[in-house]
């Protein structure tokens, strides 16, 4: 667990540096997903071959909340799938690190996402496709909680359940916030677990910043025998105190002072 905490700390620093460099990108949503991505890529969950990102028996990870891609790129750089030299090309012209994930351009990116909800429906297609191809690979999709307001989410979940996609794990970054503020204020009340269960999705919950809890839930999801959602309770902006639960950091660029203060908080201290 110490190693994972250390990795999450490094990834947060990477993300902050990348966003500071281009002065654009989503910090808050990236930070709330940081432990989830770390657990998947560095906690032995995803079965991948960094030397062969297109290995046909790999597990798939779809970042349905595509705006958190700085976190995904940072993870792919540290797994070695994306060269370190591309770190400071986020959102640059001619870069492979597009503003939202691009499966065609970027190695290790499994789906072109960003338009909310689409990633989950693509993941459903992948999970079904892998079953047709008789592969034992699993598909993980990470959605936001505000993202669950999209209609396509519920179309996709209906199909996931109809096709008994027990190889599909839906991770929900439940930070209780969306772009415009608190979910309860913007999108209305969202009884996530009740809604998912009504759609016959098996539900687990965990602390989305606690590796032992996250890994336990991810393990349990493998044996549920149904499409499974892991509701990860998180804090938007997690890791830098003045960003935590402060919605303006959904997509805000730090000042030089804020950047220094943030980097200092991420200096050798595990979150």
């Amino acid at each position: 667990m110490t190693e994972l905490k250390e990795m999450a700390r490094l990834l947060r620093r990477d993300v902050l540096e990348m966003v500071m460099d281009i002065k654009d990108g989503h910090l808050g949503p990236s930070f709330s997903s940081m432990e989830i991505l770390t657990a998947l890529y560095f906690g032995g969950v995803l079965n991948l071959d960094p030397d062969n990102p297109d290995w046909e028996d790999r597990d798939r990870f779809v970042l349905s909340k595509g705006h958190a891609c700085p976190a995904l790129y940072a993870a792919l750089i540290r797994t070695g799938v994306i060269p370190e030299t591309e770190k400071f090309t986020l959102r640059y012209l001619n870069s492979r690190l597009q503003g939202h994930p691009d499966m065609y351009k970027t190695p290790g990116v499994e789906a072109t996402t960003g338009p909310l909800g689409n990633g989950l429906a693509m993941a459903v297609g992948m999970a079904k496709g892998l079953k047709i191809l008789k592969k034992s690979s699993r598909v993980y999709a990470l959605t936001g909680d505000g993202e669950l307001q999209e209609g396509i989410i519920w179309e996709a979940l209906t199909a996931a359940s109809r096709h008994s996609l027990d190889n599909l794990c839906i991770l929900i970054d439940h930070n209780r916030r969306q772009s415009g503020g608190l979910i309860s204020d913007v999108g209305g009340s969202m009884p996530i677990r009740e809604k998912l269960e009504a759609f016959q999705i098996s539900c687990l919950e965990c602390d989305g910043h606690d590796f032992s809890d996250l890994l336990r839930a991810l393990k349990d999801a493998e044996s549920s025998g149904k499409p499974t959602a892991v509701i990860c309770h998180t804090v938007k902006g997690k890791g830098i105190d003045f960003m935590e639960d402060e919605n303006s950091w959904h997509k805000r660029v730090p000042t030089a002072e804020e950047f220094e203060a943030g980097m200092k908080q991420l200096e050798g201290v595990t979150v």
Binding site: M122, V124, A156, R162
Partner: peptide, 21 residues
């Protein structure tokens, strides 16, 4: 692959199927 009455999910799921070859 029957997706039920869901044109948007059916289109996106088709993308997912294609991504698997």
């Amino acid at each position: 692959v029957e997706m039920g009455i869901s044109e948007q999910a059916a289109m996106a799921a088709s993308a997912g199927l294609a991504s698997c070859g």
